[in-house]
Design a binder for these strands. Structure first.
Lengths: 200, 200
DNA sequence: GTGTCATATGACAAGGTTGTCACATTGTTT
DNA sequence: AAACAATGTGACAACCTTGTCATATGACAC
């Protein structure tokens, strides 16, 4: 939570600071991000920064919640049929991610770097936040009961595969930067996961 | 390549330095590892260190090649039938990793942290070294031709899944530390990959 | 003992980081 | 205008990092 004086600032200045922070947190992971860099970019003095935020953690939390707000505002409108199967929902989820990345590339970059950071603070953070993937897991369980998924498969493992591949796609995406490659790859992944790769 | 004076040192001292380096590189990723920490642990002076090595890169390369030597010496003895199928080879590979991790936990930890580091130097390093996983990929291709694997699956994707899951297993392993959980999880992964999860 | 060479040392410079604080500059209210 | 509050500022201390270098210490030869 930023201090009150921060919120007294003009919208423009708040935005300038926010965007400088986003830029830095998308360039370096949290533990390596530099406040010096941010204040330079935002064109405020070091002293001012500490009048707005308690420190790096405070700023990071603020950036994360702001991003979360915008994400929520966008994510709500989409609707899927109640009985959509696991794979369809997952695919739609990936489409959302792609769209989101198109619109706000730096935001997903921050999320990615967060996954790669293993500092104390980030560990605490990620453990507290409820997973997006937990919902997907529930869906998988439901589809098991509906007879769509083999009941003996390990749900956690499947979700983990999707999660890890997703992270991997994003990582390569930011090295090479072809967002269009992602969807076909995910479709391929779904196919492998659905049907397996062995010949009967 | 360490300097000649390093190799003139007594075995014991060389070992002390090597082990201090291993300890540090297993605790922090390369970009965050501190030479100060290493010289303190090895009980040599800062000046001496720079008489042995050019710098951090030099030391890291030395540690990596030393580990590589020991790994080679162990990996060679194992043999598998010439026509062993892809999954068997993979499983045997995982068994090797588990055994290796049991014997030298810090070594695999270094490998893991290397994957998570995205510094310039590490990027150069990983791109140059030939992948262990390339061999596995070739095996998959072979099994396609032998009619064991569906010819239309994307080999790269499959290898990537295995690679990412492997990394993930190792990561969780070092957070919780139950090495015995790994093999069953890998067996589960193989099953999912083989047969798929959808009901026909 | 003296000379020579290899090795050991820690202070040092130069760069980075964070957080603080006395002070300057605005703005607002009386 | 004068007083008071709010905000802006950059120098500063304290703590890191790396790489260098003049000097000290040891060992061996003559």
């Amino acid at each position: 939570m930023p201090t009150e004086t921060f919120f007294n600032l003009s919208e423009a200045k708040q935005k300038r600071i926010f965007e400088a922070a986003v830029k830095e947190f998308a360039a370096r992971r949290y533990s390596e991000a530099s406040i010096n860099q941010i204040v330079k970019e935002a064109q405020i003095s070091r002293g001012s920064f500490y009048q707005y935020f308690n420190g790096k953690e405070d700023l990071y939390l603020y950036v994360l919640t702001e991003i979360g707000k915008e994400k929520m505002a966008i994510a709500l409108p989409r609707q899927l049929p109640e009985d959509a199967d696991f794979f369809s929902v997952y695919l739609s989820m990936v489409r959302d991610i792609v769209a989101w990345t198109r619109k706000r590339p730096l935001y997903t970059r921050i999320g990615m770097l967060m996954e790669l950071d293993d500092s104390e603070f980030i560990a605490k953070l990620t453990s507290r936040f409820p997973d997006t993937w937990a919902g997907l897991r529930a869906l998988l369980e439901r589809d098991k009961k509906l007879g769509r998924i083999r009941p003996d498969v390990n749900s956690d493992l499947v979700i983990q595969i999707l999660y890890n591949q997703n992270l991997h796609f994003q990582k390569t995406l930011f090295r090479q930067g072809n967002l269009d490659d992602m969807l076909p790859q995910v479709e391929e992944l779904i196919k492998v996961l659905k049907e397996g790769i062995a010949l009967v």
